[in-house]
Nucleic acid binder design. Structure first.
Length: 424
DNA sequence: AAATTTAGCAACCGCACCCAC
DNA sequence: AGTGGGTGCGGTTGCTAAATT
């Protein structure tokens, strides 16, 4: 492939090359870095004549040429660590890769996306139960009117409330792997409630005939209160040519304010409500949506029994004027769906498959790597040490305590997420 | 054996942040 | 304070090898 095209950086006058790197180009880049060190990538082209933009040089170096890169399939320990980290960090590939010496964010990202697809095919949950069970729902929001959603998490041995980052992949996958939505996602209640703006609903039994609200909605976990038109949480809505439903990811304006990045002692997530930009789901998600539609017969499913073995327990719904969700025991229900309501369709997908433990998880999938070659100068010290250093061990769960959240509020607003079967 | 499909991976693109000027 | 370059990150695309028909 010898794509041409402007690319960025320019500067050389000639057309910058795109596509796969040749051995010669690699040699030039390696030589340059040896002489000048990393950084100032745009100078590579100026100084070496290499017809590559600085960005491409940096990427090539970071992902393939720099020393100590660990190539080949992920070990089972690495896979486990990735899953664990992803369950806590979401698609923060760079941060995940920081815990995996010799692995690049791109490599991990590719691995994860591949894993998502594979497990979708297999009808398996993304996370093993032991990880799912450690996840807990978000605490109620203390300031219903604030346009920002503040969350923060702390390391603690006494888990109370948990709020992992939103993750479109895991979420979408949780839907399409024919399981219940993950219990730890704040969008879980939102996803179910949004269609019922201004209505008292009993989820999920009443899913079936709503029309998506075109102006967005508001969800206040603390008040279990939904209002229309608040851009602050419009990020939960997904607008694309194929699907106008709910979005399960933080938008790009998500701002993570890390106090301690390495150990994740504290992290605050601000969702800037002033930015109405709503990111559409990724292509992967679109594929998954399409796949789900295919699985259910193009949305032609009319009635289907859904077994729901979880319950909603959002008890602190005082002061709510609209959209109050009442606690309700889940049970087998019959629901209807329509073609143009994919969200409903997804809700109808039965949950039948479970993966009992990590072993089965690991046994059923192993990375399909081309090789296990490790560079000769690899100084990778092994994952055992890494795991010891990792703050994400099972012994140190991450808790997501709400900013400014008082104990009363927290205690009075416990969800019944623990009863959820997790992502499955 | 050829054609088609699928999975995995490398690379690109757009956006956002940081920092020097 | 505004601007532009450099860099990093996450999402997406497209190619290729493997698998399947």
């Amino acid at each position: 492939m010898t794509n041409n095209g402007g690319g960025e950086g320019g500067g050389g006058g000639g057309v910058l090359k795109k596509g796969p790197w040749s051995a010669g180009e690699d040699a030039v880049l390696i030589d340059y870095v040896k002489k000048h060190g990393e950084g100032n990538w745009n100078a590579v082209q100026r100084n070496t004549g290499l017809q590559r933009c600085g960005k491409s040089c940096r990427l090539r170096w970071a992902n393939h040429l720099r020393p100590n890169l660990k190539k080949g399939a992920f070990s089972s320990d690495e896979e486990r660590l990735i899953i664990d980290l992803h369950s806590k960090l979401g698609n923060k590939w760079a941060r995940i890769s920081a815990h995996l010496p010799g692995r690049t964010d791109n490599e991990i990202k590719n691995y994860w996306n591949t894993r998502v697809k594979r497990r979708l095919r297999q009808g398996l949950p993304l996370y093993p139960n032991e990880i799912q069970s450690s996840q807990q729902p978000p605490p109620p929001h203390p300031h219903p009117q604030t346009p920002h959603l503040h969350l923060h998490k702390t390391i603690s041995n006494n888990p109370t409330t948990t709020l992992p980052l939103f993750d479109p992949v895991s979420l979408s996958s949780s839907l399409f792997t024919l399981h219940h939505p993950p219990p730890f996602l704040p969008s879980h209640p939102i996803k179910r409630l949004s269609p019922f703006l201004g209505r008292t609903v009993s989820a999920p039994s009443q899913l079936g005939t709503f029309q998506p609200d075109p102006i967005g909605f508001r969800f206040d976990p603390g008040q279990t209160h939904i209002e229309g038109g608040d851009p602050g949480l419009s990020l939960y809505r997904c607008r694309s040519s194929s699907f106008d439903g709910l979005c399960y990811e933080l938008p790009s304006n998500q701002h993570c304010q890390k106090v301690t990045d390495d150990d994740l002692e504290y992290e605050e997530v601000n969702i800037d409500a002033s930015n109405n930009a709503v990111r559409t789901n990724s292509g992967l998600l679109d594929d998954l949506l399409h796949e789900a539609q295919e699985k259910i017969g193009g949305g032609s499913l009319k009635r289907q029994k859904v077994e729901c073995d979880f319950q909603w327990d959002i008890s602190s719904s005082e002061n709510s004027s609209t959209g109050i969700v009442k606690k309700e025991e889940s049970e087998e229900r019959q629901m209807t769906t329509t073609n143009d309501d994919l969200l409903n369709t997804l809700e109808l997908i039965p949950s039948l498959v479970r993966v009992p433990d990590w072993c089965s998880d690991g046994c059923q999938e192993s990375s399909v790597g081309q090789s296990s070659v490790v560079s000769p100068d690899d100084n990778y010290n092994g994952l055992d040490h890494l795991l010891q250093l990792s703050p994400f061990s099972a012994a140190s769960p991450i808790n997501y305590d709400h900013v400014n959240e008082d104990d009363d509020n927290r205690n009075s607003s416990r969800y019944a997420w623990d009863n959820l079967p997790g992502i499955c």
